[in-house]
Write a protein that binds this DNA or RNA. Structure first.
Length: 809
DNA sequence: CCGAATTTAATTTTT
DNA sequence: TTAAATTCGG
């Protein structure tokens, strides 16, 4: 291959090269885990621009997260900057000065990446809606303006709850807002509108939900707001309805690239079709000249069906988009099956596991690397022991490998709630970590409050935001007053803001709350004066100060208030960063970014921290070392999937995703008892997935390297425990497939219920080895005195102190 | 009529 | 353990 002219094909294997080199027509890239698909995507974009002279503004690339979008832009920038450096200076990138490197990158940003549309479906189509939403009118006459608010799941649910109770007089216990919201969301993600939903609704309950749907949509329009699903559904409606708009975007975006295609839903699929074929049935579409649709995915990694994703869309791609122009024998599918990431041991385990799924295209990941180490399985007594076992493992790894960075390690779990126990252990042992996911930064109460002010400023129809902040900080406006006004608002059919800000209405109230309302109205009017000539970051500060929010936090003077204040400072920083990254930074844009940001998006340049996250958030990432915890029936796989084969297969895919994140080492953990919430201990049976990994690939946690200090075993009541577990396993019917050499060990962290005796040897994370000399009190009020080697005795609370018992031998 | 205090219910995964 | 719902005091 000619190195000079085709640098973006360099170093690629045949299949990758075929993918990157693809120009016109549809192409499906079936990309197994770790097969270099991100590379194929970025290289293809670079290739399209440099070799096929495609204008960057004609490219639309869909990623699964904002983070992936940002990374793709960065990689692309680097790729292209290196290329022009080579042309202009004929120097390898590493010998180009930093100043010049930055000049090249800036130039690439101006000429290329700025014009590229790269982002999630939601981000891209909310951007499209900012342009064209005012050209859309719903069949029922519903309209929106470009200042629309984006409602998150909480906002959406509270609106639905309002409708269920106020408008429909239904019992929210029987019609749980959450479930109703879910049903509506599902409909929206399949492109079903209220009228069609009503027609196909079954039973009284179905009919009522259909009615909620219809009212909900009207309410959204009245608030000039869209939920996440609308960000996709409205563009579909708009593009179907308005030929001019459709043609414009069809002609603009000549090349579509979609990553993680297995996790698209029918609405997203519809969007792709509309843009690619301009509304023509794809089977009859033939104008592929200088146009392409390029999708990348792996059906085995489809893990978002709860969000209405359907991997049959991926499976149907070749049928949907037949390339009539392609030469005979030229297939429109490329398969990337060579895995460059993991050891063959890890791949064998993953392949074996996933082969238990019925519904899949046959595909096997081929290893390109060595065998590596065996997978280690550790069985623990409960979730606290499990956390301690994980930490113990990490400390061993650290002790044995000087080059190890904490950033090389990920701890993965099924549910966010599992992180807490692990965090506690990590804190005890002073290991730095970062939790990805869970509550988003933008979901914090104080942040949402300030954002609600901003939303109300630009979108006066937004009653949900208004209700949120009307009495925050406290202005003496109580429940009854609010109720009165929102009744008036819905009866008169005018936005709540107009009622609340009407001096007549306020005066009619008299006395107490009138004062607060008037103050509020003046505040909003005042802030609106700054709206058009103030940048987002300054506006945020204005809101925080003038609303009295900050002074209230200062007055409160608790640690919690201090934390909130820091978060708000962080919000200002986020807006400053947004302004830096976007030339035309406006408040609408910032609010959209905030609404669509996920916690997984935040930059984690932390090479010195262990990453904790759910299996879902780990999609697309890789780590040299992966610990997967909580492998128990009912937890992983989730109890909701146990009696549904299709869901169980999805859980298995999730497990497959987890295993294939690991490059070098994989550690699996499960407990035999687990507290669900608070205190109830429940027996746990090991996950069926463990029995689906060949036992010769797994070894039990026998070896206890790391010296006598870490060699410990609590013999007490161990035998009885083992017996009990054995019975459990036998009755569960899966024990025979379990790898039998998993050694049962107890990792006694400072768990309640650990019995301490004088003479016990312990290891403390800071003080080292010691021996228990006294025990004071018992039960909840226990404390123990420990004499540490080389220092005096310390009195500690064994339930809090970072100590572990050591077996004395 | 407002705001604080107490009780009660709830945990899958996320744009 | 936490967040929301309900009750109670001013």
């Amino acid at each position: 291959m000619n190195q000079q002219s085709n640098s973006f094909l360099d170093g690629l294997n045949n299949e990758q090269s075929n993918a990157v080199n693809h120009f016109e027509g549809p192409l499906l890239v079936v990309a197994g885990a770790g097969s270099g698909k991100t590379r194929a995507l970025t290289h293809r974009i670079a290739h399209l621009i440099t070799e096929y002279k495609v204008d960057p503004s004609e490219i639309l690339a869909v990623t699964f997260t904002n983070k992936a979008a940002r990374e793709m832009k960065e990689r692309l920038e680097l790729l292209l900057a290196k290329r022009i450096a080579k042309y202009q200076l004929d120097q390898p990138w590493s010998s180009v000065s930093l100043v010049e490197q930055n000049q090249f990158r800036t130039r690439i940003y101006r000429e290329v990446t700025k014009d590229l549309w790269i982002g999630t479906f939601h981000a891209l189509f909310s951007k499209l809606l900012r342009f064209d939403i005012e050209k859309f009118v719903d069949k029922e006459g519903l309209k929106w303006t470009k200042y629309f608010s984006i409602y998150d799941e909480t906002d959406a649910q509270s609106l639905i709850k309002e409708i269920i109770i106020q408008d429909m007089n239904l019992d929210p216990k029987r019609f749980e807002p959450k479930k109703v919201r879910w049903a509506i969301s599902n409909a929206k993600n399949q492109g079903i509108l209220p009228d069609q939903f009503t027609q196909s609704a079954e039973g009284q309950r179905g009919k009522l939900i259909a009615q909620v749907y219809s009212l909900y949509r009207k309410a959204l329009a009245a608030n000039n707001a869209l939920d996440f699903d609308d960000l996709l559904l409205l563009p579909v409606q708009l593009l179907k309805q308005n030929e001019q708009v459709r043609s414009y975007w069809h002609n603009r975006f000549k090349h579509l690239l979609v990553d993680e295609y297995q996790d698209t839903n029918w609405t997203q699929y519809e969007l792709i079709k509309l843009l690619v074929t301009n509304g023509i049935n794809p089977s009859f579409f033939s104008s592929w000249s200088k146009r392409s649709v390029f999708v990348v995915g792996d059906a085995d990694q489809s893990i978002y069906s709860f969000r209405a994703a359907d991997f049959r869309i991926l499976m149907g791609f070749q049928e949907d988009f037949k390339n009539k122009n392609s030469l005979q024998g030229l297939s429109n599918v490329v398969k990337l099956e060579e895995n460059y990431r993991s050891t063959s041991t890890i791949l064998d385990a993953a392949n074996s596991l996933i082969s238990n799924n019925k519904e899949r295209l046959d595909k096997v990941l081929k290893a390109t690397r060595g065998e590596g180490e065996l997978i280690k399985l550790t069985r623990c007594d409960d979730e606290i022991s499990e956390a301690e076992a994980v930490v113990h493992r990490l400390r061993l790894l650290e002790a044995h490998n000087k080059d190890l960075k904490w950033g090389d390690i990920a701890i993965l779990y099924r549910t966010n709630a599992q992180s807490r126990v692990i965090e506690e252990s990590l804190v005890r042992w002073n290991i730095p970590y970062i939790v990805v996911g869970g509550l988003r930064f933008y979901d914090r109460r104080e942040v949402k409050d300030i954002l609600a002010y901003l939303r109300l400023l630009i979108n006066p129809s937004d009653s949900v935001s208004l209700l949120r902040i009307l009495n925050v900080p406290k202005r003496g406006i109580g429940k009854t007053t609010v109720q009165r006004f929102s009744d008036a608002s819905s009866q008169l059919g005018i936005p709540l803001w107009e009622v609340v800000s009407d001096p007549e209405a306020i005066r009619s109230l008299g006395g107490r709350s009138a004062k607060g309302l008037l103050k509020f109205k003046e505040l909003i009017d005042d802030l609106r004066l700054s709206l058009n000539n103030t940048e987002p970051s300054q506006l945020i500060q204005l809101v925080m100060e003038k609303s009295g929010y900050i002074s209230e936090l200062i007055a409160t003077a608790t640690d919690e208030a201090e934390e909130r204040r820091r978060n708000l400072q962080e919000l200002v920083n986020a807006s400053l960063q947004y302004q830096e990254e976007n030339e035309a930074a406006d408040l609408e844009g910032f609010l959209a970014t905030a609404a669509l940001a996920s916690d997984a998006d935040k930059k984690d340049t932390a090479h010195d921290r262990i990453t904790l996250m759910t299996l879902h958030s780990s999609k697309g990432l890789e780590f040299p070392i992966v610990c997967l915890v909580g492998l128990e029936q009912g937890l992983f796989p989730s109890y909701r999937s146990l009696d549904d084969p299709a869901s169980l297969e999805e859980e298995r895919r999730l497990c497959y995703v987890g295993l294939t994140r690991a490059k070098e080492r994989l550690f699996l953990f499960h407990a035999t008892e687990r507290r669900i919430w608070g205190g109830m201990r429940e027996p746990a049976v090991s996950s069926i997935f463990l029995s689906e990994i060949p036992s010769e690939l797994i070894e039990g946690d026998i070896q206890l390297a790391g010296g006598a200090a870490l060699r410990r075993e609590r013999r007490m009541d161990r035998l009885t425990r083992v017996d009990r577990r054995e019975d459990q396993l036998n009755s569960s019917g899966i024990s025979k497939n379990l790898p039998t050499n998993a050694v049962r060990r107890k990792y006694s962290g400072p768990a309640p219920g650990v019995s301490w005796e004088v003479g016990n040897k312990v290891l403390h994370s800071a003080f080292g080895e010691g021996e228990v000399t006294h025990i004071f009190g018992s039960g909840e009020k226990i404390s123990i005195a420990i004499k540490f080697v080389g220092m005096g005795p310390k009195i500690l609370d064994p339930r809090l102190a970072p100590i572990q018992p050591i077996k004395d031998n």
